[in-house]
Amino acid sequence: MIDPSVIRPEIALDAFLPIFVSSALVLVFGGFYVGIYTAVKVNILKKWAMPFAYLFWILTAYCLYTMGSLMHVGDFTAKALVIAAIGLLLLPHAVYYMQDRVHKENEH
């Protein structure tokens, strides 16, 4: 009883799980990247952990790509996702820079 003209799922049935997992991982990995970066900078973690931070950023970008392609996002959203990935890369650098600035100014 299925009229083929009606059933138009934007998302394939077996794509739901990978979408949920990849979108959750976007933030998990993103969080790890930002967390490890900051932790190394404030000396909670040792210096050697820094490459792992960037590794997590790469994983984040990959998950974002997977998620976007599984959801068949449009051109506009695709561009927005690329910008988001780059934004995330820069975010902790900018934030740490500002924090450190304020800290230095106030330690006198």
Binding site: V6, I7, L13
Partner: peptide, 14 residues
């Protein structure tokens, strides 16, 4: 909701 009432009869699993 998507495809409401168009699909009759249960389709369990895949």
């Amino acid at each position: 909701p998507r495809n409401f009432g168009k699909i009759e009869g249960a389709v369990h699993g895949k």
